[in-house]
Write a protein that binds this DNA or RNA. Structure first.
Length: 424
RNA sequence: GGCCCCAUCGUCUAGCCUGGUCAGGACGGAUGGUUCUCAGCCAUCAAACACCGGUUCAAAUCCGGUUGGGGCUACCA
């Protein structure tokens, strides 16, 4: 039975690269009917923090990467110690002070068949004796990793390319302990737009950053799986179920991929557009409340109409705040830029007439507002567009947005009339 | 420096294993259509096999080298 693991260190937030590694492990496990283990590698007592661990677990859950088994290395120190002692007793390792080091035999080729890259060979002349247990009694990374992978019966170690050179060292440990060596697969790294390594300088690297920006978990996962792998066919927006069916570790490519924010946004927009308005509204609620745009009491039907209006106009949830915000505030005012836009032609008089007529409307729906508007435009002998644009600016504070009459209806008669009267 | 990995449009990639299709798709870009603007939607276009050599009737595809990029080189994980 296939068993894989994702083994993050709680020394920072779960970042995009880690999430992609976790995702590929998860997809491989699911595609093979195997198990997915989450193991927290918190052997560095100095740098490991409980809040980071929580953050990682939350991010994994948010992404939908549920695990079948969970371990923490800090709970297992006695196991590592015991195995290290045994290696000393077997003459495979030796003490140096309070530390324990593995003896590495020279002039030997260590070869392994990487599931993604093919055979890779290292010579042990490049490898010095490996620290197994550090002087402070904690295990070194490679040692705890190997002991756990062996004891947890991990069959496939799928991890980042940055671990390739750790692999021969770890194979040496497997051999010394008489454990079966698992299969290895090294994923290409994810780079920033400048081709350099993804770092805090790049901008958002933590999964939580993307969550906060208003990316949908399914969209982020969909984008991440496209970095280094392509589903057969030309369909890139793909469900997790379908991706798992199509996934093959052998089809993962070897080249590092640059993270492309534009494409992520596009995919996110696809998911937003495809989402049911009801569901999308639910996702928007926390942000709206957090921004103070919505109280505990609100008109759900009205909100859903608004969401429907902006659905095709946003690529992140946060875009909704920027574009539709004018519908949620009453102390509305125009930016200097928009005031200037409005003053290009002075429609002060026309605005008042329009306001008066709209305020006298018996019903305030799309048809009614449009008729009033078009009648006025006809009387004035101008093109409708000439008046549409300034009115949109006056109502929304922006020269772009949904159709004018849709906007009027959701704004409501009162606020529409009021904003028209105060515009100049 | 040493060791290791990698190389197709600006970006993500298909094709490479099992040489022979105008090198396909997507993002982004450009143009046109729809519309009161924007978004969306529809249509069209531009855009790549890093370089050199070898094998072969034939190379993006196989082999070697060069160049370029990346990783590792910790009692950090």
């Amino acid at each position: 039975m296939v068993k894989v693991r994702f083994a993050p260190s709680p020394t920072g937030y779960l970042h995009i690269g880690g999430a992609r590694t976790a995702l590929f492990n998860w997809m491989y496990a699911r595609s093979q009917g195997g198990k997915f283990v989450l193991r927290i590698e918190d052997t560095d007592l100095e740098r490991s923090k409980p809040e980071y661990e929580k953050e990682i677990l939350d991010s994994m859950t948010w992404l939908g990467l549920v695990w079948d088994e969970f371990y923490k290395q800090s709970d297992r120190f006695s196991i590592y110690k015991e195995h290290a002692e045994k290696l000393v007793a077997d003459g495979k390792a030796y003490r140096e002070g309070t530390a324990i080091l593995l003896k590495v035999e020279k002039a030997r080729d260590i070869k392994f068949d990487d599931q993604i890259r093919g055979f890779i060979v290292f010579n042990t002349d490049e490898i010095k004796d490996q620290v197994l247990m550090k002087s402070d009694g904690s295990p070194a990374y490679s040692f705890s990793c190997v002991v756990d992978d062996a004891l947890m019966e991990i069959t496939h170690v799928i991890r980042g390319e940055d671990h390739i050179s750790n692999t021969p060292k770890q194979i040496l440990i497997y051999e010394a302990m008489g454990f079966k060596v698992p299969k290895f697969a090294h994923l290409p790294l994810i780079m920033g737009a400048d081709g350099a390594r993804l770092s805090k300088r790049f901008g958002a690297v933590a999964v939580t950053d993307y969550r906060g920006e208003g990316f949908l978990p399914d969209a982020l996962v969909n984008y991440l799986m496209l970095l280094g792998w392509a589903p057969s066919g030309t369909q890139e927006v793909i469900t997790m179920k379908s991706a798992v069916e199509k996934f093959s570790i052998k089809k993962v490519n070897k080249t590092a991929a640059q993270f492309d924010m534009e494409k992520l946004k596009w995919i996110n927009a696809q998911y937003i557009k495809a989402a049911e308005t009801k569901v999308l509204t639910d996702s928007l609620l926390p942000i709206l409340k957090e921004e103070g745009l919505l109280g505990d009491v609100f008109d759900r039907t009205w909100l859903e109409t608004v969401v429907g209006l902006f659905k095709s106009r946003m690529s992140t949830l946060r875009d909704f705040i920027d574009r539709a915000g004018f519908l949620f505030v009453n102390d509305f005012s125009l930016s200097d830029e928009m005031k200037a836009e409005l003053n290009k032609i002075n429609f002060s008089k026309e605005f008042q007439v329009l306001a008066d007529r709209l305020s006298g409307a018996a019903v305030f729906d799309h048809a009614a507002t449009e008729k009033i508007f078009r009648d006025l435009v006809g009387e004035l002998g101008i093109k409708s567009g000439d008046l549409v644009h300034p009115v949109r600016v006056a109502l929304s504070g922006s020269n772009v947005g949904p159709g004018l009459f849709e906007t009027m209806v959701v704004l409501g008669k009162e606020r529409t009339v009021e904003r028209l009267r105060r515009a100049f």
